[in-house]
Amino acid sequence: MTKTISFILNGDEISCDIQDHWTLLHLLREELGLIGTKEGCGNGECGACTVIVDQLAINSCLFLAADVQGKQIQTIEGLAVHTGSLHPIQQSFVDNGGIQCGFCTPGMIMSAKALLDKNARADKEAIKHALAGNICRCTGYVQILDSVEAAGRQMAGNQGKGAAAAKDPGTITQQSMNKKAGEVIT
């Protein structure tokens, strides 16, 4: 079935016609021409298709396009439009050798962003935990982890001291991805 949805994509309000069975990945790549989000497996097992929906990293290959109605979507294309103004995470991947073949890179950066936006001071263990769903075959992860750690340091610096303190993430709910949070007590 076709329906019209509206959502915010990389800061811009957009409205488009979709089919019910389209995944968000299909919508981005095939309909909107945003090829930065990659498909590595189609089953949520490699992370190449990671995008951020209302602050949460998700596999766009398993997320229905219909479910982005009213939500905020960030893709790799939303981070920078010019090599001179790369997001600190992008710049850090460039500077620290975090990129080889580059196919995992957009998903990896989006996973890193979802983490660092919440907690720029995430330590290496927290970074590994957050990136465990993003498979990379080239780098052995060493320089990727270095890249994320270095980016976090810079983002924490940019935010000023204390600004990046971790919120209780328990307040994130399924419905808050959609509208106001329900009655959630943790």
Binding site: G44, L56, I58, N59, L62, A114, H129, A130, G133
Partner: peptide
């Protein structure tokens, strides 16, 4: 729950 799939899957899976 903290080691089910990936964080992406845990953000979606219920």
């Amino acid at each position: 729950v903290s080691n089910i799939g990936s964080l992406q899957v845990r953000n979606m899976g219920t």
